[in-house]
Write a protein that binds this DNA or RNA. Structure first.
Length: 176
DNA sequence: AGCAAGATCGGT
DNA sequence: CCGATCTTGCTG
């Protein structure tokens, strides 16, 4: 009997559309196994990048060596370096051939996508990792229901107004 | 082969 | 507001 198995989010969860997965990720736990003891970090802010038509999405110009994992089935990790310094942690969602991913922007007490990866030690070696089966990173369910707000995405001035204005950033409402 | 840009962050 | 820092992808 492996207790971990009862809590890990399965493959099916990630194979839904990014716009459905993103809000459902809020409140759940990101678990990274490095040095014991195992720690769980509550996901508090995520952002959706969805499809080749999305001007802000890395798949906007089709498949490349960097973004090819986005064309795979949901549950894989899309990790890339930005500004030569910060790793961005994304969870691929949806079905194969429909490039989309959810960026993990903040964890409880750890705000900022660059800080999340730096603190957790996420780097290129996590590219393509499968959250459904990996033994060093996965997502765990949380029973508490999560209220959230939607906002515009950050840092995508290069995308046109239409895509810039999409309310594809999801933030967990803090409870007092 | 060369170059511009980038889903960020911390310090002025 | 500005610089750090380097991989990627586009151009020639």
């Amino acid at each position: 009997m492996n207790p971990e198995k009862n809590y890990r989010v399965n493959k099916k969860f990630f194979e839904k559309d990014a716009l459905e997965v993103a809000p459902d990720l809020l409140g759940k736990f990101l678990v990274v196994k490095r040095n014991e003891p195992l720690k769980k970090y509550k996901i508090t802010e995520v952002e959706v990048y969805r499809g080749e038509e999305d001007e802000a999405c890395h798949a906007k110009k089709g498949k490349t060596k960097r973004n090819e994992i986005m064309y795979c089935s949901g549950g894989h990790l899309y990790v890339y370096l930005i500004y030569g310094m910060y790793w961005m942690l994304n969870i691929v969602t949806g079905k194969p051939g429909h490039p989309q991913a959810v960026l993990i922007r903040s964890l409880e007490g750890l705000e900022g996508p660059g800080k999340v990866t730096k603190y957790l030690g996420i780097n290129k070696s996590y590219y393509g990792e499968n959250l459904a089966v990996s033994n060093r990173i996965w997502i765990e369910n949380n029973k508490e229901n999560a209220g959230y707000t939607t906002l515009k995405r950050i840092g995508i001035d290069y995308a046109g107004e239409y895509w810039k204005n999409k309310l594809w950033r999801y933030v967990l409402i803090k409870k007092n």
